[in-house]
Each structure stands twice: as structure tokens, then as C-alpha cells.
Nucleic acid binder design. Sequence first.
DNA 1: TTGTATGCGTTATCAA
DNA 2: TTGATAACGCATACAA
Lengths: 334, 334
Amino acid sequence: MERPNIYAVAARAGVSITTVSRVLNGKGPVARRTREQVLAAIRELGYQPSWLGRALAGRGQAALGIVFPDLAGPYHAEVIAGMESLTAAQGQALLILGTHGRDRCDEMVLDFARRVDGLVVTARTIPDAEVARLQDGEVRVVLLGRPPVNGAPAVRTENFAPALKLTTHLIADHGHRRLRFVGDPALSPDVAERWEGFVQAHRDAGLSAPRSPVRANLRQEDGYLAARRLLGGASRPGALVCANDEMALGVYAAAAEAGVRIPQDLAVTGWDDIPLVRYAVPPLTTVHQPVEELGRRAADTLVRRILGEEVPEPDLVLPSSPVFRESCGCRPGG
Amino acid sequence: MERPNIYAVAARAGVSITTVSRVLNGKGPVARRTREQVLAAIRELGYQPSWLGRALAGRGQAALGIVFPDLAGPYHAEVIAGMESLTAAQGQALLILGTHGRDRCDEMVLDFARRVDGLVVTARTIPDAEVARLQDGEVRVVLLGRPPVNGAPAVRTENFAPALKLTTHLIADHGHRRLRFVGDPALSPDVAERWEGFVQAHRDAGLSAPRSPVRANLRQEDGYLAARRLLGGASRPGALVCANDEMALGVYAAAAEAGVRIPQDLAVTGWDDIPLVRYAVPPLTTVHQPVEELGRRAADTLVRRILGEEVPEPDLVLPSSPVFRESCGCRPGG
DNA sequence: TTGTATGCGTTATCAA
DNA sequence: TTGATAACGCATACAA
């Protein structure tokens, strides 16, 4: 048995397709009795409208897309989970595309954009210029984890203030003087802002400017390798402020290998507060980000844009704050 | 400027849309000169065919879907990454849907299925009966991490043999006698098979049957809680075989808290070989699964089904094997 | 209150 | 070698 179309329903109910369409969309006047007949026919045939037909007829595709660099760490998976929770609830489809640092991904993204009503574009995927071009091409875009571009609204998390607070904590409360920042500010706006907060804390404390960041690529192995280098070197740092949790856990491994105790010999902090670090040994001091909500809000903002509503906050910054556990030197349970 | 359609191209090239279509699809005879004119028009107008039109005209939607329970751990994200690598390379779209243990997800999945050419359905999402119904409804389905149902091909990883080997290693090489399995066999076919291998190892070694599994729910916290219970109890186990890595790391935390040393006082093993465990302290002995390839192969199988090709292996089982590090008691580096 | 006819952008059939 | 035209499934202006 073929899948029934709107004509089949109309025939069965003894009406025209227009009437069926009206019943389906709840628009326009339909006599009670007629409506019931149509509804009955729909039920009997197990009819479900083809969203292809709908989309082609100009009703939008009821689909959102997200463009991310890759699915290596937990971060983007959580962003996607947040978006998915919203799209699923609203009966929309969610399409995903990883750029994987490919060169010619402009076309890919453009092609991708054609299949959705709007796009969430994360940091470290496509350059601002390309975002601007998308905007000009009437593609609805929402930026995630990066500042607004050319009128495209952004949704992101706080970075500067928590980094400042965290670093100040290490300096003022635990007396650290030789701190290093592990992460590459050039890699993403988020990391850049964290670095800024790190620097500011030094200024605020009247310390000399910190040494340049230890450029590392956000994965655990990068943290491990960076720490191995640092811990083997002459002037060993007293505290490592890592740009994310995975690198911090990499530092844990290098420290264990070198016989360096955390936090007695080395304070370590992360960023993200991924589930694993709460049960790390010792529990990691980090900065909690509402990543899933970030995805949800991005999707929500995108939907508003698509509906033509005014976006209330074109640059929404969600609060994130330090979680002091034990790797910074704080006492267990206190 | 509106987005050009096939008529615009035809008009510009001074031909009919049929000819344009032929050039586009490389089918049917087209004079060299004509083709060039059409190609020029396409280029000048920046024309790109609408996939909506294509799909409606019956060419398929060039989209694959995956249904998963949630994005909590690294596992499903990696599966998705594997699928995405294939779909992106082939210019297909990838749609995702999480069931989140929702009740009435039958309709959601059905609706979802209408938007794609085929579906990868993972374990712990929808019941076999529902999969069978999808199959009957002419939805192309490939199962992932669960056995074939009603003719739907499956792609999964080895479980029994590695579990047998791993457990035997603990028993024979490290002399363990009081082993417990942490995980719920009822939760997924994968876990059930791992439990079977665990049991078989006891039989093979001539030991009495192991105690019942410590039912825990795959997340780190569940492992932590389970281990806390076990380590506080009277008859403390000597080895914990965990159904996945996250739970094993939870065990790490509980052990540290209880002053139990790994592996001296307690051997621990995981499953999956997620990146983090390689740099755990101590490095975790686990079973490596080619999860990303699993996703890729599932997508590949699905594409074959869609193209109507014979699926070479209706029940593809990818090999997975133990990685002996230090948490089982093996020496560093050997 | 209901129906007719047309457009959306493509592919495919058949005729020229 | 090319073209006119009919699907595909739906929404909607317009007519009745």
C-alpha cells in the first residue's frame, strides 16, 4: 500500500484537497461536519502530510542545523544535546555538520544551509567573513561561543570574569606567584577571553605580567605533553590554569608520572566542569559552564529569528563561575 | 536577487529545462556545444539545484538519520562522528534524534524516518517490535550495537570474546578469585554479552559461578556509588570488571576516597578505551572498541541498503580487544 | 463554506 | 539530439 497523499484523503472524505489542507492547518473556515469527515479519512488512511511537499510549497523546512569543528571532546556533544532537546520538543529536525578543519568547507556550509531554516555556527568553524557572506545570502545564522558578526546574534558564556576570579583565588588565597596559562588564545574567542582574565588578575594583584601562554590544543594529550615539558624544565610553575578540563586531566597524568603531587606541589585548574572531573583524583577545580543550556538558547534564538521575531538579546552571555574543589589547594569539603 | 531555478538557467542558455537537467545529471545525450552553453549559464547565475525539488521528484532525500538514547557519554558522540564523516564526504545530510527514554517516541521516530532515506537505530532506543514495524513500513533501517531484527542488518562490536579474555587474564595471570561485574546486562545487548564472557571465564577456570552483576547505569556516578557500596562491604572484591570506562573512573574515585590502592588492593577494568583513560592514574586496562568506525560502517551499510545493493554482511561484527595497562595489575610498559 | 487552478523545482516519459 | 509536459505533495489566491 502506497503512502496516501492529500488527494487520497480528499477523495475518501468526499471533499477537495483545499478543505483537507484547511483542516490540517486549522486555518480557514470548515464546517464542523466536514471537518469530522476529513479527520476520519485521515485516521482511516493513516495519512501524514509530506513535509517535502510542505517545504516546497514554501512553508519552511522545519529544520535547524549546527556547524561544529569536530566531536572530539564532550563540549560540542553537549551543545548539540542542548539544541536537540529543543528541536525534538518542537518537532523540528536537527542537521549536523562537522568542518574538521577542512579547507574548502565554504561550499559545504552553503549547501548545508540550503537544507535548513537556520544555522547555529560555533567558534573554530568558519571565519567571520564567511559568516558575513551567509548573512548577506539571507541565511539565518546564530553564533555560538563567538561574538556577533554583521548583525548575526550570538550566544556565549562568560569567560573574562570567571578567569579573573579563578586566577585571583590562586594568587591571593593560595599564594601562587609562578602561574602559567595552558591553552592557545588564538584558537577561539573563549580561550582568548580566559587568557585576558588570567592576565588581568596579575595586574590586579600588582604582579608582573605572566609569561606567555603555553599553546596547547584543547585535547588531553596536548595538556599532558605541555605539562611534561613544563614539569621537566628548570623553573617549574606552581600553578597551571588550563583552558579546559581535558587538558587539566592531561596535566594530572604528567604530574603523576613526574612524581609531582597535586595540589601540594602543583595547583591545577580546568574549564567546563565536565562530569568526569568531579570524580577525578583530586577533584578538579574548574569553571562551570552551562553548555547544554548554551545549545538550547542558541536554538531558541535561531527559532525566533526564523519566525521573524525580534531577538531580545543579540549578544546573550550566560553566566559561568568557578567551582573550587581540591586541585587548587582548597581543602576537601571546604 | 532571487535564487535562480532551472528555468532561469534554461532561458539563459537558450535551451529547455530538460536539457539543463540532462547536463546536471550527466544522463542522456547532449551536444558538446549545448552542454558548454548550459554550463556557462549555470556558472554565471551561480545556480545550484534545489534538493527539495529533487527529493520531491523522487530522487531520495540524500539524508541519513540516527536515533540514539542520549548524548551523555562519549560513546554516542563518537558513533555520530563516524557517521558524519561518511555522510559529509558523500554530500548527504545527517539528522539526529535522541529518544531520552521518552515514552511515546514511536511517533517521533516514525516522523523522523519520513525525513530521511534511512535510519541507524542504536541499542537502548526503541524496542525490537517497533524496529520490525519500521521495517514493514518500508523504512530502511540499520541496527547498531544490537542484533539483527526482522531482516534489518546489524553492525556491532565484539563483546563475548574480549570479556572472556579480559576476565581470564585477571583470573589466570593476576590470580584474582573474587571478581565482580559492574553493569546491567538488561540495559543493552552489548553489556549482556560482556557479562556472558565474564561468566564463561569463571567456568573455563573451573571457578564457581560469579556473583550476580552489580547493576549500575553506565555513568561515572553509578560506578562511583556502586564501588563505594562494594568497598565498604564485608567481603571486598579483588577485581571489578566494569561495563564501560566511565564507571571504571567512578570506581577510581571511590577507591581513592576509601584509601584503596589500584591495582594493589583492587584491580579495575573498563570498556571502550575512551581517550581519557589512557592518561588516567593509573592508566586503565580496558577493551578497545572501534566506535567511530562502527558509526561509519553503519552509515555505509545503510547507504548500500538505500541503493538497493545486497548488504554483504547482514550482521557485521567488528573486532575489539583488551588493552592491558596498569589498572589490572600489569607492570608499566609491559 | 467549499472548490478550482496554479506555483514550488526537479526528474522522467514520450514525442519530435 | 532536443523539447513539451506530466508527475511529485502541498499551500493558497481566487472563484463560486
